[in-house]
């Protein structure tokens, strides 16, 4: 693959998902796109690149984007955001929303659903406080493939061991042969829908809490600003935003400000 081929694939990815393909990611192209080539009856990566040039085959372009954007996800990834949610965000919402008893949470770019389900399990653990409350968790991702898996709630032995306390495995999962499925009651708490952060998501409604972690790092600065601007419009004045450990709004967005003492957590600043 030459530089022009790399640039072509990088452009497809950026136009369709906003993701920036780093120069050092050639190995990812090989491992992720060869299966796409096979699916489209092409011999190899070179065959795929040839087919891509000047194509209007939306399905091929979509499959390339989907294959390149599928990212890792763990239960309770990084722990701290979930501890913060439990210790600060949830108690604040229980107070501020006590009249409506309605909370909406968005897991943006939810991948295979572990973040959304981690939040659902925290809420289950606090069920006594939330009796007669309506809690909605919406998970969105641009990839139908990961959403399918998210909806099924079925995970490998490897996946249920990274980040998930064994007490939660016993409490909220059932074993299905070699795999583990999260219980129907937890699955019912999350609504998974297709959604691309680059396009209009106003139809999703408004959210008291937004988890948008480890997505913006793959975007260019302008894309970050633009996405955060539209996210802020979907949040009330006391809306809380969780970003990934390596992400910040500083220098990127004027619509949010850090909450002191809560790392990676931001509040609307209008």
């Amino acid at each position: 693959m030459n530089d022009a081929d790399f640039a072509l694939l990088a452009k497809i990815l950026k136009d369709r998902s906003g993701l920036i393909l780093g120069d050092n990611k050639t190995y990812l192209l090989e491992s992720r796109l060869v299966p796409v080539a096979k699916k489209h009856d092409l011999d190899d990566l070179d065959g795929l690149i040839k087919a891509v040039k000047g194509t209007t085959n939306e399905l091929l372009l979509f499959d390339i984007t989907e294959a390149m954007t599928t990212n890792e996800s763990f239960f309770f990834r990084d722990n701290t955001p979930f501890d913060t949610f439990k210790a600060h965000t949830l108690p604040a919402l229980l107070e501020s929303r006590k009249n409506t008893r309605h909370i909406r949470i968005w897991s943006a770019a939810c991948s295979t659903g572990q973040e959304a389900y981690s939040l659902a399990m925290i809420l289950k653990e606090n069920a006594a406080l939330l009796a007669n409350w309506r809690i909605e968790i919406i998970g969105t991702d641009l990839s139908p493939k990961v959403l399918e898996k998210a909806k099924s709630g079925v995970y490998s032995q490897f996946e249920v061991q990274r980040g998930l306390p064994v007490q939660y495995l016993v409490k909220y999962f059932s074993q299905v042969n070699e795999l583990w499925q999260i219980d129907a009651a937890v699955r019912a708490m999350v609504d998974f829908r297709p959604g691309n952060l680059l396009t209009d998501f106003s139809l999703l409604g408004t959210f008291d809490v937004v988890f948008c972690r480890n997505v913006l790092i793959y975007f260019e600065r302008d894309t970050k600003s633009e996405v955060l601007g539209r996210v802020s419009k979907r949040m009330p004045d006391d809306g809380v935003l969780f970003l990934g450990g390596a992400e910040t709004v500083l220098g990127v967005s004027e619509e949010f400000k850090p909450i002191s003492g809560q790392r990676g957590v931001y509040i609307i600043d209008r």
Partner: peptide, 27 residues
């Protein structure tokens, strides 16, 4: 699940299913 439950009841704090790797052990 039966073994995991039995272990927890006997006072285990966590449970790793083999095969494991450094990420799982660290987590």
């Amino acid at each position: 699940m039966e073994h995991i439950r039995e272990a927890m009841e006997a006072g285990a704090n966590e449970y790793i299913m083999k095969p494991f790797d450094s990420d799982i052990l660290e987590a």
